[in-house]
Design a protein around this nucleic acid. Sequence first.
DNA 1: AATATTTAAATGCAAGTGCATCTATATTGT
DNA 2: ACAATATAGATGCACTTGCATTTAAATATT
Lengths: 145, 145
Amino acid sequence: MIEKVSEKKIATWARFLRVSQNLLDEVEMALKSADLPPLSWYDALLELHLASPDGLRPFQLQERMLLAQYNLSRLIDRLAKSGFVERLPSADDGRGQVLRITKSGRVMLERMWPTYRRAIGMHFADKLDSQDIRDFSRILAKLAS
Amino acid sequence: MIEKVSEKKIATWARFLRVSQNLLDEVEMALKSADLPPLSWYDALLELHLASPDGLRPFQLQERMLLAQYNLSRLIDRLAKSGFVERLPSADDGRGQVLRITKSGRVMLERMWPTYRRAIGMHFADKLDSQDIRDFSRILAKLAS
DNA sequence: AATATTTAAATGCAAGTGCATCTATATTGT
DNA sequence: ACAATATAGATGCACTTGCATTTAAATATT
């Protein structure tokens, strides 16, 4: 019996791996098909939007995004080069900077959202009823703790 | 009301993204800490093990792994270079090959499993009871369809 | 105050991924 | 049988990611 439960859990894990990879791929493909930047750009811009008008230090953004330090550093490079983010020297820490989303960053955020939202709907939201969402939410909370 | 449900779904989606990325990171880190190859190697070797003794064509492995063709091609390169997989010419298709796990591939599979299993347990299985697993399984099935 | 340690962020280099294309064989249509 | 098309797999090039290290400023230690 113990064996059996364990096997069921492992099968669920395997299914989870496949489904989550597939969902991610679908979303990235949807963005790419619409000539939009990848999901990580959306995530970063959204966090910076939510942190307006103060902005965020890179290390704060890093925590929120679960990204390695060097990966964030380069993501910021690209966002800044595209003009979606501005880097200001930090007033209270000479090592650091403060990141702020720009006007055109906001425009991109809004431009990405309809495509992103449609992908979430098609591949996720529309497939689940509200009971599923309640259950899923509970499960994710357990997994996050 | 409709608005509210939608927001709930989007919040659940966001949580799902974070949790799944985090789980993946934890598993990869566990493997790396034990000086073991990445999860994709395990997945490929497991599929080839399950397909023993006949082996698999690369395109079949590709379907099972949801991997881009060129990525699989290079993954096979690495696995072959490490001696975990052998490439045999395909009898019935001159373009193709047949992949088979080697003895040392099986050894690696078994060497990876305890670490992988422990990570699954710690970050996934041990956090969910059997009702959770039933619910999760149902939800994943819906998402996969 | 001077020195050692820690933290924020960037970067050189190696490895992995995405994209487009290429080669070779197989299949289809005529 | 022959030409056109499709499929299996590899590969050159650009871009991204991982790892280790570096630079500079902040904090802790004595």
